[in-house]
Simulated scan of single mutants.
Amino acid sequence: MACVNCRKIRSAILHGKMAEAAGLTVGVLREKVGLLTAGEPLVDATELPSLSGKTKAELLAIASAEGVEVEDGATNAEIVTAIEAKRELVAA
């Protein structure tokens, strides 16, 4: 279970408000505010957000938070595919 501050930060990032404006990923943001310790995973696999029904901005924020690089002009389906592929690699 993530701490309250982590949930607030993740929520803000997933809604594309804070991270996109600052050009940061969730890991960088958590590190900057002192919430990330050495060796701690950037994303808790048990708390991965669902990808269905998300807007493009939300998908891009999720991709950024999970360290997924997305090409400019990628469609929602391409973003979802990239996120899912990264998740499979991390889980393996």
Rank of each mutant, 00 (worst) to 15 (best):
K54E: 08
A38F: 13
K32I: 15
K32G: 08
V26G: 06
A61H: 00
G23A: 06
V68W: 06
G67C: 05
T55P: 12
G27H: 11
T25M: 02
C6E: 12
G27Q: 04
L59F: 00
A65D: 05
R30S: 07
K32T: 08
A12V: 05
T46C: 13
E47Q: 11
A77P: 09
A61F: 00
M1L: 13
E47D: 14
T25I: 02
A91D: 11
E69C: 12
L14P: 00
E58T: 02
E58A: 09
I62C: 09
A82K: 01
N76T: 14
P49I: 05
R30H: 06
P41G: 08
G39D: 01
C3E: 15
R7Y: 13
R30T: 01
E58Q: 11
A19V: 01
E66V: 00
L24N: 03
L48S: 13
A92D: 13
P49E: 11
R10S: 11
P41A: 13
N5S: 15
T75R: 03
L14Y: 03
E40F: 03
T81M: 04
T75N: 06
E88W: 01
V33N: 00
G53F: 05
G39Y: 00
R87C: 04
V68G: 10
I9S: 01
S11V: 03
H15A: 13
I79T: 00
A92R: 15
V28F: 07
P49D: 10
G53K: 04
K32R: 15
E40Q: 14
D72F: 15
A74G: 09
E20A: 13
L36C: 05
A77D: 03
A63S: 06
I9L: 05
I13H: 11
K17W: 11
L29A: 05
S64L: 09
G34E: 03
L29P: 05
K86A: 08
E40V: 03
L35D: 03
E31R: 10
L59S: 01
A19H: 02
K56I: 10
A65G: 09
V68A: 04
A65S: 12
